[in-house]
Design a protein around this nucleic acid. Sequence first.
DNA 1: AGGCATGCTTACATAGATGTTAGTTGCTTA
DNA 2: TAAGCAACTAACATCTATGTAAGCATGCCT
Lengths: 116, 116
Amino acid sequence: MPDFLKDKKRFYTPVEYVLDKIGGLYKMPILWRLKDKPWRFSELKKSIDRASDRMLSKTLKELVFDGFVAKEIIPEVPVKTVYSITEKGQRSIAIIMALRNYGFELMKEDNIEHND
Amino acid sequence: MPDFLKDKKRFYTPVEYVLDKIGGLYKMPILWRLKDKPWRFSELKKSIDRASDRMLSKTLKELVFDGFVAKEIIPEVPVKTVYSITEKGQRSIAIIMALRNYGFELMKEDNIEHND
DNA sequence: AGGCATGCTTACATAGATGTTAGTTGCTTA
DNA sequence: TAAGCAACTAACATCTATGTAAGCATGCCT
């Protein structure tokens, strides 16, 4: 597997490419929430409250740019925005679920408590 | 999903936990190579030559510490070391393969050339 | 004695991801 | 008039992963 370029970034493996698109601290948590229904910015913020406004906004912008999420602005007062998952985004859910399940498996081996 | 601690690190999701264990630039490339047969340090270095000695050594040490890889020292002259995958490591291969396949899928959608 | 090979380790440097704090716009409500 | 909400955005700070360059231990070979 040789390397390749995309948007001026160099990648060496397909896994690197995936994690460029849906890696980082917040992308998968966001996609996971959007898989069932659209969410507003402030709802996401409340649910993933460890993320700052800045990071949430930046992350959503990247997900929209890469086609995993769609953004709709509702001109009510005050203005609301609604984020929903796209078909491309839906196709990422399987791998997120697999990572999540494998994570629980590892946590169990390591005797980590969790409430789900 | 509340947060949890392990080895003084804080995690918020099972996916974060997985990527702490097998994420980063070299862990999956190493596990992928070890899945079929043991490799020596210098062989891994030659194959993943974008990794510096320092990173390769550091990464292998973490994989051994976390139980994904076993290290054997062969007292020949000069000393050789052989790294092999453990049963725990083998169980990580399925998710690596899934990530890899999804990566190829995304690359195809984005018209990225690759020779495999 | 000096050099070479293997498998490292140490010290220092850099870049990118994320955090913190504050500000903005347009309208509403007290 | 002041304050508040929603959804950001900008400036600056920090932290962590990774990179670079050099050194080190052992024992052989010339």
